[in-house]
Design a protein around this nucleic acid. Structure first.
Lengths: 252, 252
DNA sequence: CTTGATTATTCAAACGTTTGACCAAATATT
DNA sequence: AATATTTGGTCAAACGTTTGAATAATCAAG
């Protein structure tokens, strides 16, 4: 239990004590579909913070408060459990990103060539995205999980790309193309979209750096608002859009 | 050797075949400090692409063409080997980032309030950084290694922060502060610097996305130049700096 | 310029533990 | 009774680490 001494055998790089997530249950057929969900939820959290190799089936069974055999009963192996975890993750983040993307698409279509409206919907989108990505209510383990997939894509990356990344990039592509009056299919637009989104995601991906440099130790609503308020004018400038006056893009 | 079937026991998530890196050697005392370096080099590559848990001492010994015991003889354990790998990494990337940072500092100091000069040195810095980060000659495994540390900091993150991240952010902070005529200590500047650098780094961190969206399969010099040429005007716009005319910031 | 002890390094083999997978028995639900 | 789920345990393989002998370089003594 001592982390300061590195004498442990087969120790993890950054040991994380397993957290109790579910209450104890009776024997026999207590969980049903419930324990399957519990395994999936715990698997997501553990994979997100330790990676695939950092999570053992025993760690997982302990965290999910189920027997070791139950995991293999429900999912038939660790690799397939990971697959199902990604499947679940994609479904889970849909309701969080879907409305933001949909609204951006509608706003861009409605804005047409009106640069003030384009600026306003850009600001709204960035603010919503920061809130979704950095805010703590939902997407707690999902974002680290995704960032891990982006950096070290597994066989499931194609699913994430098709179902979640492409729609987001396409929507932002429409915005950037409208702001620059350019064809959304241009490689230039693809690059600028990536820089656009990367600017936002880097605050989630490298939060250790942000916290160390800004003297924070978590993303509070105030911190997130400060980040959004600071970055939005910069992004508008990069797109050549006029600054937003006041009280624009506050909420969906 | 078949990756499509998930029937392996204790298999890695993304299996990577070990690559031969060094030639065979005689017995006795052949390597000396040489085999120590070989271990360190292979450890960096393997840790970078598979993470700490994804690398076994046997994998490493095989890749470095040394005996299993030699690793513990030289480094006294896996955890300490990781520590030494980070130490070496910091020393290795110094010559690549140091001149870029130093030149940026000098250029910013020389530019003063001249916004054209600020724009020119910004463009030069961004181009140099893209070349260093995405270019393939050096920093091959170093960047993925660093990005892994940023996303999932270990005990060694503080070293990287102090020795490599802080100087870079401080230098960019001076640039951004000069462009906005603001105090470099402002939290706003800290945030903008992070967005600035994150914009660049995201092309390395999420290269799987970039390649999939742009239809690339590697970063060629032409690709890197296209990225830089596209992003630089955008960054200048975000800083409110004038566009660079031509042939600025091509090389150090 | 040969010796012989000393040191530094490599090697094969094993240690005990943990891993993912698997099983037959037990238990609760239908 | 039939089905679905949980249980405790076993398995071979892989894990990080340790060991002791073997081998080559080093160097003082002769």
């Amino acid at each position: 239990m001592d982390d300061t001494h590195a004498t442990d055998t087969r120790g993890d790089l950054n040991p994380v004590e397993a957290q109790s997530t579910a209450e104890t249950r009776a024997r026999g057929r207590p969980g049903g579909a419930d324990s399957r969900d519990r395994i999936l939820e715990c698997a997501g959290k553990l994979f997100a913070e330790r990676g695939y190799n950092g999570v053992s089936m025993r760690d997982l069974a302990g965290a999910a408060k189920v027997n070791l055999g139950a995991v293999n009963y429900h999912f038939g192996g660790k690799r397939n459990l990971y697959h199902e975890t990604v499947r679940r993750l994609i479904d889970d983040i849909g309701p969080h990103f879907g409305p933001i993307i949909r609204q951006l698409r509608e706003d861009v279509a409605a804005a047409g060539a009106d640069r003030d409206k384009l600026a306003a919907c850009t600001a709204r989108f960035v603010r919503n995205l920061y809130t979704a990505v950095l805010g703590g209510q939902a997407l707690q383990w999902q974002m680290p999980f995704l960032l891990r997939e982006f950096h070290q894509p597994s066989r499931e990356f194609a699913m994430i790309l098709a179902d979640r990344i492409n729609p987001m990039h396409d929507a932002v592509g429409a915005l950037v193309a409208a702001a620059r009056d350019q064809d959304p299919q241009d490689t230039e637009i693809t690059i600028l979209v990536h820089a656009f989104i990367g600017q936002i995601m880097s605050f989630g991906a490298c939060r250790a750096i942000v916290f160390a440099r800004a003297g924070w130790d978590e993303y509070t609503p105030e911190n997130i608002a400060l980040v959004a308020d600071t970055v939005i004018p910069s992004i508008l400038g990069s797109l050549g859009l006029p600054p937003v006056t006041a009280s624009n893009g506050t909420e969906a």
